[in-house]
Amino acid sequence: MKLNRQKILAFFKKSKDKATVILNDKSKATDTIQEALGKAVTNKGDLEGVWSKLLLLFAVSKDYVNGSYTEIPKGSIVAIIGGLIYFLSPVDVVPDFIPVLGLIDDVFVLNLVYKQVVKDLEKYKIWKDKQGNIISIDGAST
């Protein structure tokens, strides 16, 4: 199956626009992250290739929204939350109800987001290590 990159990127841009609005409401942002995490855990087997990246995206999102880590540029956190919103949408470019193929565009977008913010994530990991915390399955610190 050939992905329509332009269509995916257009849909992702809409997701980033939604992320900008959601980030202004801590409760909505937290709910969005938790909902995306639930979907990720449910589909962990299909997300094996991006699982560690996804955990990092969840962790930095959660730490940003709860105010414990704010050193990430606004554009990066908007891209991350936008990626999670895209991931959450059941009827994006490739609808999630299509067996096996439904998450292909989601994985594409999550990898794209990861590549866009990888330097910011490296700084986050250094900060997280200094805190003595590790990133766990629920995106929380332990």
Rank of each mutant, 00 (worst) to 15 (best):
G132S: 11
K53S: 06
L47Y: 03
P99T: 02
I135Q: 00
I80D: 04
P95I: 09
D63K: 15
T20E: 14
K28M: 09
L55N: 07
S76G: 12
S89L: 05
K125G: 05
V109K: 00
S89A: 11
Y124T: 08
L112S: 14
A40P: 00
K125Y: 10
G67H: 05
P90D: 11
K130S: 12
V60H: 10
F87D: 01
G45C: 08
V100I: 13
W51R: 13
N24S: 09
T70I: 09
V50P: 02
Y86F: 06
S68K: 06
P95K: 08
I98F: 07
T30H: 06
G132N: 11
V21G: 04
K39D: 00
D46S: 11
S76K: 12
K128T: 07
K44D: 01
K18Y: 08
L101T: 15
S68V: 15
L54A: 02
Y114Q: 03
I135R: 05
V65G: 01
E71H: 15
V78G: 04
V41F: 02
D129T: 11
P90T: 06
D96H: 09
S27E: 15
V21R: 08
S52D: 14
V78Y: 09
L112A: 11
I137R: 10
V93I: 15
F108M: 06
I77G: 00
S52M: 14
D92N: 12
I22V: 15
I135D: 03
G83F: 01
I98P: 10
D31V: 00
P73K: 10
D31H: 05
S61G: 07
I134M: 09
K13C: 12
K119F: 15
K44H: 08
I104K: 09
I135V: 07
P95M: 06
Y86A: 05
K14M: 08
I137G: 07
D105M: 01
I81D: 02
T42W: 00
T30P: 03
I134S: 13
N133W: 10
Y69D: 01
K26P: 09
G49K: 09
V113R: 06
D17A: 13
A79M: 14
Q6N: 08
I22Q: 05
L103G: 04
F58Y: 04
Q6F: 15
G45A: 04
K128Q: 11
V118S: 12
A59T: 08
I22N: 05
K123G: 13
I134D: 06
T30L: 14
L103I: 03
N133P: 09
W127V: 13
V118E: 15
L103E: 03
K123L: 10
K44V: 05
A29S: 11
I81K: 00
Y124V: 07
D105I: 01
Q116H: 11
V21M: 14
K119L: 12
P73V: 10
Y64N: 09
V60D: 09
E35H: 10
V50I: 13
K128S: 11
